[in-house]
Design a protein around this nucleic acid. Sequence first.
DNA 1: CTGAAATCGTTCACGATGTGAATGATGCGG
DNA 2: CCGCATCATTCACATCGTGAACGATTTCAG
Lengths: 148, 148
Amino acid sequence: MDDVKPEAFTATLAFRIGTLGALVTDRLAEKAREHGLKVKHVGVLAALAGSGPMSQLELARLMRVAPSLVVTLADHLETMEAIQRLRDPDDRRRQRLELTETGRALLDECTEAARALDDDLTASLDAEQRATLESLLAAVAAAEGLPA
Amino acid sequence: MDDVKPEAFTATLAFRIGTLGALVTDRLAEKAREHGLKVKHVGVLAALAGSGPMSQLELARLMRVAPSLVVTLADHLETMEAIQRLRDPDDRRRQRLELTETGRALLDECTEAARALDDDLTASLDAEQRATLESLLAAVAAAEGLPA
DNA sequence: CTGAAATCGTTCACGATGTGAATGATGCGG
DNA sequence: CCGCATCATTCACATCGTGAACGATTTCAG
């Protein structure tokens, strides 16, 4: 007993998900860069597509990010005309962020790129295993209160 | 047909693994900080424990990190007496990094913390689902050439 | 109605993290 | 022995995100 395996730490879920997450995010960043975006920009587009228009503060909470960061993300997306920034007439402190057609198209392209990445990642898995993995990760993500 | 779901991007494996990875790494960082370490320091300890003593360059390649970063990581770990840095007598350019007893103990504590985190993450899963998830992630990680 | 307090977005200075380009020391091949 | 590769180190730098002000607006108590 008490025979601790040397690889115990790297065999941990926390370590595996962490390192895999970093790897995957790097690759996703490359693809997003081809469209002039960072990963978080795509996160904004996805949030707006998934939850509809919202204020910057709502978005900040959803993305678990400082409100000041949303400013710069929205700035860039607005410049690209991927989103519209409208003062909420009912509360003129709020900026209502809304996806444009351009933004939707951009998101679709990034989604396509992400799917291609998925295919690559799961190349060693059969269809059933892949579906299982997706389902289990979705469950864990949901339990942690992550979007979608 | 062609009815694209709004949540298509967030339902992607790439996005899920990426965001989950960030979340998990943050939590792991908190635990590591209690021991005076960053996550990458623990990565160094784990690598040395798993693959045995090695040079800084080997470690840099294993961790997919710039050699200059290994310098500062090793500096800190050496100060804590978690590793030993010995000039390789056969090739005096190399620094042979080796885990000390202190380092081993530190790694064990961090592994324990990671396991606790794992339990938390998989609280909504039964034992079989958790084992399946671990196995599938290990397969994906292995296919991407990640350690352990 | 009015002034105080809260809310939202914005700006800015800053810390934290990691990289790539020099540099110096050492090893190796002709 | 000399030229070149390799390893570790230092350092300047880019990137990323945060938290503390601040101004504009809304809300609410009295």
